[in-house]
Design a protein around this nucleic acid. Structure first.
Lengths: 336, 336
DNA sequence: TTGTAGGCGTTATCAC
DNA sequence: GTGATAACGCCTACAA
């Protein structure tokens, strides 16, 4: 590979001049600039980003750590991040923690070692210290989807509690009596907030909260399946269920189908998060929809702003969810 | 941030010794090693990967460029890559070209500038020269899913033609007469190979290939929708359709549903690629399934091998597809 | 405006 | 086995 010195020699200027031409900040004699550009083209010179990063002590790479690449919620979010990032001149490296604390920790370490310019993360565990270390060394951290108290960073969330309340109230309004809830692991703010919304809705309607109707699972498809099975097997006899994320909704529905239970005839279903191709699934599923793409955009915008002004006040953006009523929770109008 | 010199000073050794301890290749007096490790812990020292990469002239980062993060086919593939990569001590940075040649080109340039240790790509355009440049500078390239002739690199493919043939023959066997085909853009090998398999199956059955029944679209959901609409509107009157990827299958089905056409009663459907949650979709869809996860693994294994032995013979791995017959192509057993 | 020179943090090559 | 010392390729005071 040609270096800046090779270019300099060929253009008969100093390496400094080459650097200046390439970075375009300072004024350079047009004649020299042209010679440099010619030499660059002739040699096929490409700047070594590693050397540049070492010298400048910073990269133009953002690290994005999401907790599940296979969940369409996150991939849509990533699209939002990418669009903003590339408009702002950054590249995005996506990492998949797979809800695995060890992998997450690993990727945080890589971001630190590689001097990432910024990190956007949907935390799947409580690596508060690691994240703060990152922030201290000048790599701003933005949390998305999930909150992690004690981390010095901006965050983008949705009104989880409100969304869960809407979902549950809707089931109450539809006349269901034994409404179950399948939520995620206690360590994740989304899981606990959605559970809180469920409880709040019951309380507001004067209903008791029956703990036998609540399951904490793992936000994965199989987790939803197992939780649903456990609800049915242990005699809680739900006539409706609120599932706190999209993959668990799928799992729960598979469990119901396997047992020959009809939706919503035997058990009604409302899920948090949209499912892609919702229109191909029968029955179509009532969901609490999040603005996933916009969450990604918002996170990226916060990151870009913080890089520009490191001492900016910490901000927390909350976006809104929306209840989309479909067939899985509306028993009356029987389809022909 | 502490540097290696800070550690050296604290441990009262030279920087070289610290480096040796950290890299563990050479033998170091256990006493000194312990002092070094203590100093590392006390200072919270973390090695600067950028400096290390500059000096070693190589990274431990793999770049993976896929053409659509939102397509579950690719996310599953990425999981395969990740598992092998992390076992081999590499980190994976995922980039989404979004079937956009410009974005792709950009990410290739980044991989080059950042001195990636290797690149796995599902090419969405014909940047043959860029990829060869990469390969020449010591960053091996592995192509996956799609073939790009003239690129110096290994590749992992599936038997696209055979899969398409199975799909089409199956429709013929089921008695369909007017079998349409919706495939992807001509520049992608997957699109042309699957089209070829479709034609081959018709020919083998002694059927004419009616070009009015063929559409080349873009491998996206909306593309499948439009192609299906065009088939219906322009009077080709298909009674079955073979769609050459998963997203277009969804689009085509949506189009059929919108027009009140039943599947498979009015039009049968067989799609290439599995759909996630295929069991929730009604009717369930007959597909040509690919071993997506294994494709990722295979690509990663080829990359690891090539890094170990740069002069290894170029190899091309072909994995097998499998026809999974479901309800969308089997008219007879009417479901109650 | 241009060139010289030093350093970003590591690792590799020498002597010792 | 250990310690100086010189790169790796680039950017940026500073001097000219």
């Amino acid at each position: 590979m040609a270096t800046i010195y090779d270019v300099a020699r060929r253009a008969q200027v100093s390496a400094a001049t080459v650097s200046r031409v390439l970075n375009g900040r300072q004024t350079v004699d047009p004649l020299l600039a042209e010679r440099v550009l010619d030499a660059v083209a002739e040699l096929g010179y490409r700047r070594n980003a590693v050397a540049r990063n070492l010298r400048k002590r910073q990269t133009s790479l953002w690290t994005v750590i999401i907790s599940d690449v296979q969940n369409p919620f996150f991939t849509s979010l990533v699209r939002g991040v990418e669009d903003v990032a590339s408009a702002a001149g950054y590249s995005v490296a996506l990492c998949n923690s797979d809800e695995n604390p060890e992998k997450e920790s690993n990727y945080i370490a890589v971001a630190l070692a590689e001097q990432a310019a910024g990190l956007i993360i949907s935390p799947s565990s409580r690596h508060i210290e690691d994240l703060n270390l990152l922030a201290e060394t000048g790599c701003p951290v933005v949390m998305v989807d999930r909150e992690l108290k004690g981390v010095h960073g901006d965050s983008v969330l949705v009104d989880n509690e409100h969304g869960a309340e809407m979902a549950t109230s809707h089931l109450i309004d539809q006349g269901y009596q034994q409404i179950a809830c399948i939520t995620g692991p206690r360590r994740l703010s989304t899981a606990t907030q959605r559970l809180r919304g469920y409880r709040e809705a019951l309380r507001a309607a004067g209903r008791p909260v029956d703990e036998a109707l609540v399951r904490m699972s793992n936000f994965r498809e199989h987790g939803g399946y197992k939780a649903m099975a456990s609800l049915l097997d242990e005699g809680a006899a739900p006539d409706a269920v609120f599932t706190a994320n999209n993959l668990m909704t799928v799992g729960a529905m598979e469990c119901l189908a396997e047992r020959g239970l009809s939706i919503p005839g035997d058990v009604a279903v409302v899920g948090f998060d949209e499912l892609p191709w919702a229109d191909l699934v029968r029955p179509s599923i009532t969901t609490v929809a999040q603005p996933t793409y916009d969450e990604g955009r918002a996170a990226a915008e916060l990151l870009a702003k913080r890089i520009a002004q490191p001492d900016r006040k910490l901000t927390r953006v909350t976006l809104h969810t929306e209840l989309r009523v479909r067939a899985s929770s509306t028993p009356l109008p029987r389809q022909g």
